[in-house]
Design a protein around this nucleic acid. Structure first.
Lengths: 242, 242
DNA sequence: CGCCTAATTGAACTTGTTCAAGAACTGTGG
DNA sequence: CCACAGTTCTTGAACAAGTTCAATTAGGCG
């Protein structure tokens, strides 16, 4: 899931100097601030900086030839942005909430990584992870129903912001239905209907369009299709439980 | 896979021409042969080799939880396979035609690249390209009609095997409709209908399901939606009206 | 030639979209 | 604090694209 974006650096234990991570390259930079709606960079701009998102949430999008906006990913606190570009940004990045980032120049970043035998494999690994995530994202979008996508999306946002979810978890959705729709490649109407359906079946509760409470985490995961993998595991005969 | 999106994903040729390329790491290896239908590796296997496809065509696929096969890509002569894996293959690779490959071990490959300041950026660039291609692929599949996808697919296969296409180009489609369907995430019926439609409108001619001739390359590109791109990108970086 | 599989075509159906209203939320000013 | 205006969100009904099911036809190959 969450394509494009790099993995979180939750609690980077940085025990000693020898355990250096890519994140550490940003530590000396002063944080920069962006208001909701402000753009960090545009699609097609020269990719001259790599970013670490310190705080907030960012939307990554492209505009298609016919004018539609496609959100290719969201970024959450702790993630790195800009690793996978050649010389132009592939998409635009826009602050959703108040955002603070640190940035380093792309050549500087590359040089720094290239000179460190410790960091090099980490960058590779990060890119490979992104690749992997992008594929999963693609499979999710291509081979799952609207209900599955929306459920999976809610789980993803919840987990990114709260960690593992339980009954009663309150998710603050700082996104419009249009954001969700453009990410899942659905229409706002369909997203709305899917969410209503989840509410009507008692899986979630809504307090306005923004605050939503998870009432039945297990059901939500079920709708998202997270069980499939266990059911389909070869050593267990496939079962269609109600 | 190109021209779906607003910004060109392919990168400009690098100014630095170095003697050594990633391909050269395979030159000392004896070619191996696979007959049609044989598997180079399975999804989930330890990713212990990197391959160069010398000759032939390979299909890359995953099996989803519900048993459906998803073809995540095709490989053509000259391409490298296995760069973007962490420690397990993300998908299976199966020979479609007679195939010959050279292979090196993953640790060997990595060590070799890591020790060469010349090769390192090339591997990075390769991964970034794959990333771009994966995104374009995703946008193609998500935001284009069945007709567009099929047209774009025929163009892609034609170009990979013949170079740029012209009126009368004869494409040998060593694929079943199921292959195409599983790649484009359509059904075989829909693929068949799209191809019939192209035949009926005189864009292509069929001689059996395998040999197809391009009668109107321009129309085919038009159906594939390749024009959108030029219309939408008047050689300036794109500006948006929010 | 005849079999078996792949490909084509048709018709009913499903899912999500589109178009069109109405309801609810947000922020502002009185 | 409430009313109001501009959104955004929700809901309904008609519609379209692609799927599914089913039947035929065409190719490939012994």
């Amino acid at each position: 899931m969450h394509a494009i974006v790099t993995t979180p650096s939750t609690t980077a234990p940085r025990s000693v100097e020898s355990r250096m991570g890519l994140e550490d390259l940003f530590q000396s930079q002063a944080p920069e601030h962006f208001r909701p709606g402000r753009t960090l960079f545009w699609e097609g701009d020269p990719a001259d900086h790599v970013f670490q998102l310190v705080e907030g949430m960012v939307r990554l999008y492209r505009i298609m030839a016919d004018g539609r906006r496609v959100i290719v990913g969201f970024m959450f606190a702790g993630e790195l942005l800009g690793l996978s570009f050649q010389d132009r940004y592939l998409y635009a990045a826009e602050a959703i909430t108040d955002v603070s980032v640190r940035r380093v120049t792309t050549p500087g970043f590359r040089a720094e990584v290239d000179r460190s035998p410790e960091l090099r494999p980490k960058l590779l690994a990060r890119l490979q992870d992104e690749m992997c995530a992008a594929q999963d994202q693609m499979l999710l979008l291509l081979h799952h129903s609207a209900d599955q996508r929306v459920a999976a999306f809610l789980l993803m946002v919840g987990r990114k912001t709260l960690g593992e979810l339980s009954r009663g978890s309150l998710i603050k959705l700082d996104l419009t239905r249009a954001d969700i729709a453009d990410y899942l490649s659905l229409t706002i109407e369909t997203v709305s209907r899917c969410i209503s359906r989840l509410r009507n079946s008692g899986v979630i509760a809504l307090d306005g369009p923004v605050r939503l409470t998870i009432l039945k985490p297990t059901s939500l995961k079920e709708v998202a299709g997270e069980e499939e993998y266990w059911l389909a595991t070869p050593d267990m005969p496939r079962q269609l439980s109600a």
